[in-house]
Design a protein around this nucleic acid. Structure first.
Length: 849
RNA sequence: GCGAGCGUGCUGAAAUUGGUAAACAGACAGGACUUAAAAUCCUGCGGGUGGUAACACCCUUGUGGGUUCAAGUCCCACCGCUCGCACCA
């Protein structure tokens, strides 16, 4: 294209730097609490500083930024901070690999990623930046730990963990692959360790019930949390063990089948198993059960007879054998069940394996196992219940059990307490010491933080804090006795369960957060992040808010008012055709005659196109956002990220899409620099002076403002982009009066600025705007703007379109019929065969024949 | 196995409370400009029938049924895909 004399070329690199500097200099995005102003807290889930931002970050932060900028121009006091979830294993692993220190590695990464995020042009208040691995952050976290401990919301208990015998460390479930340690390859054992737990189950009911209040959350996420908490209503029943002074409690949701009990099944981790622990046979059995790390539904159900019998709670003459089994979970209910093989598939399978007799307790239901629950089924083989319906039997059994003090009604949750101990170095130290006499005490508040030692040796096996020559040895200040520090560190989910509170007063040295500030800013109005955090992080954060409240902090119960879960960024994948196919980077794939191949040192190798999958290093389909921003600019990248797919859906990455997006910005930039216009916020022309086409355009402009605003508010960014492109397509093509031209393009830039801020700011400045674009109030649509009062009515016969008619708005049915009968084209529609005419004003006339 | 969601052109998608299906894009094809290419601009782009043509008509939202004047949208069944949980007593 020949450049016009006045035209300047679109140079994103130059203008993006320029505007980022201006925003920084003007402190455009710093937020101060201003009680007079309405606040808006936009937060994206903070990143783990792995070294480089990826497309998922780019998408996440673009979405958040559009919202933050939208509310800012709508004159809200916006809080839009950023920080780093900077503790965690990757740093430790990288440190071992690169022979460096996790702290240095993390700090390097943060520096790099901060620069990358800044190059996107995000409207972030960088003054509020926090990092969870900094002393200034974890000092307060240790205080929170102590507060929770004092309120009995943190406790220590023995629990079985995944233990890697080679690396001498505990592994998280996701680090155990096929029963082996992900790094060492050693077979993972279950080992009993004393671990710290957070009592999240104390809030199970509340966390469940309050889901109903979360109107701004996707139903899907709420349902996932509901299922995760997993409430079931049932009865806890005590079975007396014969000959010894013990009883076993079991939980059941089907008390009406109590006379179908053929055995008691106990987890090998049930405390009663201690009695058999010196039996060599049993030890073997127990180990076998414990070794299967991921207890699989396909595992054969095995049992070990305890030698003991229980009494039936409602008939002491019935003797029930007690078995230890591998299919009863210690973590659910009481770790013991009564087995009813006739009416439970698992118990049925077990009874078959062991050879236990059983019979149906429902009349005419002899095809076993019969697991349906039909309220009208009639009982049999159940003593005093015989002849009653299931419904009646249930009621009667429960009342008898309660009456005879053999048990009570109970709610049970699937949710378990949250284990927060990690035998790792790179995490927040737990502020606890153990004196020589075994007493556990918390560190004095004045002595916080307990800092991590920097001179550590990561090359040894096991917990580096435990291995450190001096760190753990201390003297108890209170008793002057020798003591040892807790060497476990906290799970990083602990770090991220309250960071959104810290953002409200990130520099406060005295307290985790200043309650005047949190009172103003909390809750987070919009929280945006990946759906993979639907359960853990979000549930933990909800729990923390409640737990902190119990500790006397003034926090809202629900931290996140509205939750937006964005989809993944996907990209096409290619594989070689070998027997063990290798992934091939799409950039290295060429096409020829509809076939795909790649070049390997001059050799052509055929490859197969796979389906589009989430970008990942292992599938070699990653595209680095940095390179895209460098080549096409941040505005192109931002616009592409939100143009095509709605946020909650997966986004298909396409370089053609990026190119086309860039082409569009280029086109508008060139057009507006060669067709000079003056930026204006006012339309000072008598609307009656507009010609017909112009008044249609003016109406359209107002409809764009309305719809675009609505779309942005509701995260329909792809629709918003479609509207604004429609507007610019019209404006580029149509010849219009200068005043209207100026006004329309000014509106365009104001609307578009939240998506492409550098681009819009630059063009607005070129057009003579002296202030900052983001300080101008969001445009408002003129509600009375319908200069053009015509409307399109669709004509249908039997619901099928037969034509259309342009009429005055709100025209009556009779008037429309009159027009139709006078019309040459449509008079034929109206004949004697019409049975009925359906008229929907301003929309449709349907003739039913 | 249980629970949830989704199936619309070659592709990403759009379609307020049921009311013009395919907006806005991408890919592709043709044309203009050019020695040529790139860039840019213009045109076409779900399928079919008839017509030289403007145009007219028919079909089309995974499959089959239903409700309704009217169904992509609501209801039932089936098929397919995706996600979450998974021995939860």
């Amino acid at each position: 294209m020949v450049l016009g004399s006045d035209m300047t070329e679109y140079n994103p690199k130059k203008i993006e730097k320029k505007w980022q500097r201006i925003w920084e200099k003007n402190k455009s995005f710093e937020s101060k609490s201003d009680k007079e102003k309405k606040k808006f807290y936009v937060l994206e889930m903070f990143p783990y500083p792995s070294g480089n931002i990826h497309m998922g970050h780019l998408r996440n932060y673009t979405i958040g930024d559009v919202i933050a900028r939208f509310y800012k121009t709508n004159k809200y006091n916006v809080l839009h901070p950023m920080g780093w979830d900077s503790f965690g294993m990757p740093a430790e692993n990288a440190a071992i690999e690169n022979k460096t220190n996790p702290k240095l590695w993390t700090e390097e990464n943060i520096k790099n990623m901060r620069a990358q995020l800044q190059s996107i042009g995000l409207s972030i208040d960088w003054n509020r930046e926090i990092s969870t691995c900094s002393k200034e952050y974890y000092k307060h976290q240790q205080k929170i730990f102590i507060d929770l401990y004092k309120k009995n919301l943190i406790y220590k208990k023995d629990s079985y963990v995944n233990w890697d015998p080679v690396d001498n460390t505990v592994l998280a479930n996701e680090q155990v692959i096929d029963g082996k340690g992900w790094r060492s390859g050693a077979i993972v054992e279950k080992r009993k360790l004393s671990q710290w737990f957070l009592k999240i189950t104390a809030f199970a009911q509340e966390l469940l019930e309050d889901l109903e209040v979360l109107h701004g959350w996707p139903d899907k996420v709420k349902l996932m949390q509901k299922n995760w908490i997993g409430l079931s209503n049932g009865v806890e029943i005590k079975f007396k063990v014969r000959d010894i002074d013990e009883s076993i409690s079991v939980f059941t949701t089907r008390p009406e089948t109590l006379f179908g009990a053929a055995f008691l099944g106990l987890s090998v981790e049930h405390q009663l198993s201690d009695r058999l622990d010196n039996l060599e046979e049993f030890k073997k059995f127990k180990n076998r059960c414990l070794q299967t790390t991921d207890r699989n539904i396909d595992d054969e159900k095995i049992g070990f007879f305890s030698g003991l019998f229980a009494e039936h709670p409602l008939d002491e003459n019935i003797k029930i054998p007690i078995y230890f089994t591998n299919y009863v979970l210690i973590n659910y209910g009481t770790g013991a069940i009564f087995g009813c093989p006739a009416h439970d598939e698992r118990d049925y399978e077990f009874a078959q394996n062991i050879g236990i007799d059983f019979s149906s307790v429902f009349k005419n239901k002899d095809s076993l196992p019969y697991v349906e629950k039909n309220e009208n089924d009639i009982m049999q083989n159940s003593e005093f219940l015989d002849g009653l319906s299931l419904k009646e039997a249930k009621k009667l059994v429960v009342s008898k059990i309660i009456e005879q003090k053999k048990g009570s009604e109970k709610k049970t949750y699937r949710l378990r307490d949250w284990g927060i101990s990690r035998q790792r170095y790179w995490g927040c130290p737990i502020p606890i010491i153990y004196s020589e006499d075994g007493e556990i005490s918390t560190i004095e508040e004045s002595e916080l933080p307990v800092t991590l030692p920097e001179d550590i040796d990561l090359s040894q096996n096991g917990n580096p804090l435990d291995n450190h020559p001096t760190w753990k040895f201390v003297k108890c200040k209170k008793t002057n006795k020798q003591a040892i520090r807790e060497t476990d560190t906290l799970d990083t989910f602990f770090d991220s369960s309250w960071y959104f509170l810290r953002f409200c007063s990130p520099q406060n040295d005295d307290k985790p957060f200043d309650e005047i500030e949190t009172k103003y800013w909390m809750s987070v109005d919009h929280y945006i992040g990946g759906v993979e955090h639907a359960i853990l992080h979000l549930l933990y954060s909800r729990f923390f808010s409640r737990a902190l409240k119990k500790c006397g902090y003034d926090t809202p119960k629900e931290p996140f008012k509205k939750l937006v879960t964005q989809g993944m960024v996907c990209h096409e994948t290619f594989k070689t055709k070998e027997e063990n196919p290798k992934w091939v980077n799409p950039n290295n794939v060429l096409t020829e005659a509809g076939k795909f191949y790649t070049n390997d040192n001059g050799k052509k190798i055929d490859v197969l196109k796979g389906r589009s999958e989430k970008m990942s290093k292992s599938k070699k389909n990653v595209v680095d956002p940095d390179s895209i921003i460098l080549k096409y600019g941040a505005d192109t990248a931002r616009l592409f990220m939100i143009s095509d797919s709605p946020p909650e859906r997966d986004l298909e990455w396409s370089i053609d899409g990026i190119k086309a997006t860039h082409k569009y910005l280029n086109k508008i930039y060139n057009f507006l620099t060669s067709n000079k216009f003056n930026f204006t916020t006012q339309f000072d022309l008598n609307k009656n002076k507009l010609n017909n086409d112009e008044s249609i355009l003016y109406d359209f402009l107002n409809s764009v403002i309305t719809n675009y605003t609505d779309d942005i508010k509701n995260y329909r960014f792809n629709n918003a982009v479609a509207k604004i492109r429609e507007l610019s397509n019209k404006l580029v093509k149509q010849k219009i009066t200068k005043t209207l031209f100026d006004y329309c393009w000014s509106i365009y830039l104001r609307l578009f600025a939240i998506i492409t801020p550098h681009f819009s700011s630059e063009l607005a400045e070129t057009a003579g705007l002296k202030n900052n674009l983001e300080d101008i109030f969001w445009p408002e649509a003129e509600k009375t703007s319908k200069i053009n009062d015509k409307i399109l009515i669709i004509l249908q016969v039997n619901g099928k379109k037969r034509g259309s008619l342009t009429v005055e708005k709100e025209m009556s049915k009779d008037d429309i019929l009159k027009i139709l009968s006078n019309s040459e084209k449509y008079s034929g529609i109206i004949d004697n065969e019409i049975k009925k005419i359906i008229y929907v004003p301003n929309k449709i006339v349907n003739f039913v024949k």
